[in-house]
Nucleic acid binder design. Sequence first.
DNA 1: ACTAGCACCTGATCGC
DNA 2: TGCGATCAGGTGCTAG
Length: 280
Amino acid sequence: MPELPEVETVRRGLAENIVGKKFKEIEVLHPRATSPKSIAALTSLRGARVKGVKRRGKFLWFELDRPEVLVGHLGMSGQFLIQPKSAQDERHLRARFNLGRHDLRFIDQRTFGWVGVEEKINNRPTCVQHIAADPFDPEFNLDETISRFQRKKTEIKRALLDQGVMSGVGNIYADEALWRSKIHPETRTEKMSKARFSQLISSATEVMAEALEVGGTSFDDLYINVNGESGYFERSLAVYGQEGEGCPRCGREIRRITFANRSSHFCPKCQPTPRADGNR
DNA sequence: ACTAGCACCTGATCGC
DNA sequence: TGCGATCAGGTGCTAG
């Protein structure tokens, strides 16, 4: 579900609502809700005070008044909600952190998301060590990012989704960025110039910034912010989920293909199939 | 060392 | 109505 704009929307909501608050009671309601280790580590956070909420790519973590951090990933369907303590349990409630009158609740239909306790190395949780900077990170370095793209030998769509190359982009914004840059998703990275990578990174940054401004993309209630509100970028999508619709640029019918076990949406005219000899 | 393929889940929807 | 196939915003493991 949530890609960078959605996760950042959630991060902002969490920062506004729970920085300074203390975890009073912690309850884990599903075995898959916590990262490999134990629920003991989670419940040991009772009494910890939240100092800040950080993000890299799609990973979130809470800085505490102790060395460890509370880390979370939303997976495909995870949500953090701020709820009155008295509110009824959600159907897919997986963990509850009581803050007094309110709860921070972790809800996740598909259970690909998780929360856990980790040490920090280089100022980042251990599970985030292999995640590259996203384009909004002050540590983001364009030249290094392009070099990592250039080292990949695969289709550009796969490389765009590789969080170790550049983080934050998921299936929606990958398709939107490729459309904006007029690049076919199956274009081989070996055939792309440095300028082309640079342009694509700009498109990805641009589309994610625009989505962030309107609270992200919500197709249904699987993605909502900490107050339960939807984002509005769905109406601005050019290709994702638009199979059979007209391309907003040229009117040609948007096509959907499957590879890497996921759907890719593109305009066959604006993003022509790369030639066998690869020139484009 | 790297890439491709698949597993990990629940639920909605579509065609028969 | 029912049932199977397919699809859904992500990541990590592992076989080659």
